[in-house]
C-alpha cells in the first residue's frame, strides 16, 4: 500500500541520518585509538591521521593492570548482577501489578519514594562498609544501587498491568492453578519484551558502572572492572589538570599516566563487548509479540 511504502522510505532516511550522527564520532574514537600519540597531541583528533600506531592497544594488553582480567570481572559482574537483579525486579513488579493485593498502594509508593529521596553518599557508604562489611569484596560491586531500582520495578509493574490480559489469568485460576504457576507458566512467557528490556537496562548499568568500584575498592585492584580502570585513569588526569596549584608536581603525575591514544583505546575496549552482544539480545524483542492469545 502506498502510504506503507512512503513510510518505509521515510523511516529509512530518518534512521540513516540518525545512525550516521551516532556513528561518526565513534569512528573518530576508533581512528584516534590507532593514531600515534604525538600526532594526536600536535594535530588533534582527525579522521585521516598523519601517523598510525597500535601502541595504545599494545600498552593496554601488556600493562600491569591486566585489562583482560578487568574484562573478566566486568563480564562476571554483569552476568551475575543482571540475573539477580532481573529476578528480584520482575518478581516485585509482578507482585505490585496484582490489584487485589492488600497494601499495594502503600508499597508502590514506598518503591517510588526511593526514586526521589536518597540517603546520600556518606550514609550509603557507612551502611555498606560498616554495617555489612562488604568493602573490598565482589559484593561491593554487585549490591549497591545497581541490582534493582524503582524505575525498573515500575516499568515491569506497568507492563504486567497493561499487557497481560486478566482473562488469561482468570482462565488459569478457574482451572485451579496457583498464583506461582500462573506467574511462571502464563505471565512470564508473555513478558519477554519487558524482561529483555529491563535485563538490558540492568546489564548496561552494571557494565558501565565505575562508581561502586571507585569508592568501595581501595585494596583489591584485582576487582577493577573495565570501566572502573578507564575512569580511574581519566579522573586522575582531570584531577591533575584542575588542581595543579595545590599539588606541586602535577606535571610529574601527568607524565606517569598513559597517553591520549591509550585513553581512546580503553574507551573502545570498554564499548566493544556490548557491540557484540547486543544484536543477540535484540532477537527477544521480536519474539515477544503476543501470538494472538486473547480471544473473546
Amino acid at each position: 500500500m502506498k502510504s506503507e511504502r512512503k513510510f518505509q522510505v521515510f523511516g529509512h532516511i530518518v534512521m540513516i541520518i540518525i545512525t550516521l550522527c551516532a556513528i561518526l564520532p565513534l569512528v573518530l574514537l576508533l581512528i584516534s585509538s590507532f593514531t600515534d600519540n604525538d600526532t594526536l597531541i600536535r594535530n588533534g583528533y582527525s579522521f585521516i591521521p598523519e601517523k598510525l600506531s597500535a601502541y595504545a592497544y599494545e600498552y593496554i594488553f601488556t600493562s600491569g593492570n591486566s585489562v583482560v582480567h578487568a574484562y573478566g570481572i566486568s563480564i562476571l559482574l554483569t552476568l551475575v548482577g543482571t540475573t539477580l537483579g532481573l529476578t528480584i525486579t520482575t518478581l516485585l513488579g509482578y507482585a505490585l501489578s496484582k490489584t487485589f493485593l492488600p497494601g499495594r498502594g502503600i508499597i508502590t509508593f514506598l518503591v517510588f519514594f526511593t526514586m526521589l529521596f536518597n540517603g546520600g553518599l556518606v550514609p550509603t557508604y557507612i551502611n555498606y562498609s560498616d554495617v555489612f562489611g562488604i568493602k573490598n569484596t565482589f559484593w561491593a560491586l554487585l549490591v549497591p544501587s545497581l541490582m534493582m531500582n524503582a524505575f525498573n520495578v515500575l516499568m515491569v509493574k506497568s507492563y504486567f498491568v497493561s499487557s497481560i490480559p486478566d482473562a488469561l489469568l482468570e482462565a488459569a485460576y478457574i482451572d485451579g492453578a496457583t498464583e506461582t504457576r500462573a506467574f511462571v507458566q502464563i505471565a512470564l512467557p508473555l513478558a519477554k519484551p519487558i524482561v529483555a528490556t529491563i535485563g538490558l537496562f540492568i546489564g548496561i548499568g552494571y557494565w558501565n558502572d565505575w562508581m561502586n568500584g571507585y569508592i568501595y575498592l581501595t585494596k583489591r585492584t584485582d576487582l577493577y572492572s573495565i570501566q572502573n580502570l578507564l575512569n580511574r585513569m581519566i579522573q586522575n588526569i582531570q584531577f591533575l589538570m584542575q588542581n595543579s596549584s595545590s599539588i606541586s608536581n602535577a606535571n610529574q603525575g601527568l607524565a606517569s599516566i598513559p597517553s591520549v591514544s591509550v585513553r581512546m583505546a580503553m574507551a573502545v575496549v570498554g564499548v566493544l563487548p556490548i557491540v557484540i552482544v547486543y544484536p543477540f539480545i535484540q532477537n527477544n524483542f521480536v519474539k515477544g509479540i503476543t501470538l494472538g492469545g486473547v480471544k473473546g
Binding site: L121, V122, Y125, I126, S129, D130, K135, Y214, I215, T218, K219, R232, Q235, N236, Q238, F239, L240, I247, G253
Partner: peptide, 20 residues
Amino acid sequence: MPMDAASYAQNMNLMLASGE
C-alpha cells in the same frame, strides 16, 4: 594504602567518616 589521586579525597573522607 596508596590511592588514585582523583579518588583520594573522596575515599579518605568516606573512610574517616565511617571509622575504617
